[in-house]
Computed example of a mutant assay.
Amino acid sequence: MKLRKVYPIILTAVITLLIGFAFVAFLLRPQPLDIGTVDLNTVSDGEYIGFCQNKILFAVVKVDVQDHKIIAIEVLEHKPSYMEQAEQIAGKVLSGQSLEVDAISGATLTSDTVLKAIENALKK
């Protein structure tokens, strides 16, 4: 008899927790970012640090520029499970000398976050 009285309370608590988790996950989900362009002819030689926080995704990059060309991009910090994809998108920017590169398949939000960090570094 007691179980019949407790069962609705437990069910209500479980449903409330699931709705709460879903709501928090929705709020923390990274968003697509607008990536601008950078004219490398206006960027002086040097080492630039840029970062971007996209809700739970966070990227810190170091960009080295010499003779108005990007000579190196190092991803200093990113979520470990997406570090490989972050380094791939940085490599695409380096080889293309542009932020206008295709996102890594399956890691669009990671790609956007790293691209925005590179843009932020070069626009300082």
Results as ranks from 00 to 15, higher is better:
10 I>Y: 06
10 I>Q: 03
11 L>T: 13
11 L>I: 13
12 T>W: 15
13 A>W: 08
13 A>H: 06
14 V>K: 05
14 V>I: 14
14 V>G: 05
15 I>S: 09
15 I>F: 11
16 T>E: 04
16 T>Q: 01
17 L>D: 01
17 L>K: 02
17 L>E: 01
17 L>P: 01
19 I>V: 14
19 I>P: 06
20 G>I: 01
20 G>R: 05
21 F>W: 05
21 F>E: 11
21 F>C: 09
22 A>C: 07
23 F>L: 15
23 F>K: 11
24 V>D: 04
24 V>T: 05
24 V>C: 00
25 A>W: 08
25 A>N: 14
26 F>P: 06
27 L>A: 06
27 L>C: 07
28 L>Y: 02
28 L>T: 07
30 P>M: 00
31 Q>S: 14
32 P>T: 07
32 P>D: 03
33 L>Q: 03
35 I>V: 07
36 G>A: 04
37 T>G: 13
38 V>Y: 03
38 V>E: 00
38 V>F: 02
39 D>S: 04
41 N>A: 06
41 N>T: 05
42 T>D: 10
42 T>W: 03
43 V>C: 11
43 V>A: 06
44 S>I: 09
44 S>F: 10
44 S>H: 10
44 S>C: 08
45 D>A: 08
45 D>N: 11
45 D>I: 03
45 D>T: 09
46 G>I: 05
47 E>Y: 08
47 E>S: 15
47 E>F: 07
48 Y>K: 03
48 Y>G: 05
49 I>R: 11
49 I>Q: 13
50 G>I: 03
52 C>H: 08
52 C>A: 10
55 K>C: 06
55 K>M: 08
55 K>W: 03
56 I>T: 09
58 F>W: 06
58 F>T: 14
58 F>Q: 12
58 F>Y: 12
58 F>A: 09
59 A>V: 05
59 A>C: 05
62 K>M: 09
62 K>N: 04
63 V>C: 02
64 D>Y: 11
65 V>K: 11
66 Q>M: 12
67 D>F: 04
67 D>I: 04
69 K>Q: 10
69 K>D: 05
70 I>Q: 01
70 I>V: 02
70 I>R: 00
70 I>A: 00
70 I>G: 01
71 I>H: 08
71 I>Q: 06
72 A>I: 02
77 E>C: 12
77 E>D: 12
77 E>K: 14
78 H>K: 02
78 H>D: 09
79 K>N: 15
79 K>S: 14
80 P>R: 07
80 P>S: 10
80 P>H: 04
80 P>F: 07
81 S>C: 08
81 S>T: 13
81 S>Q: 13
82 Y>L: 14
83 M>R: 10
84 E>Q: 11
85 Q>N: 15
85 Q>T: 13
85 Q>F: 10
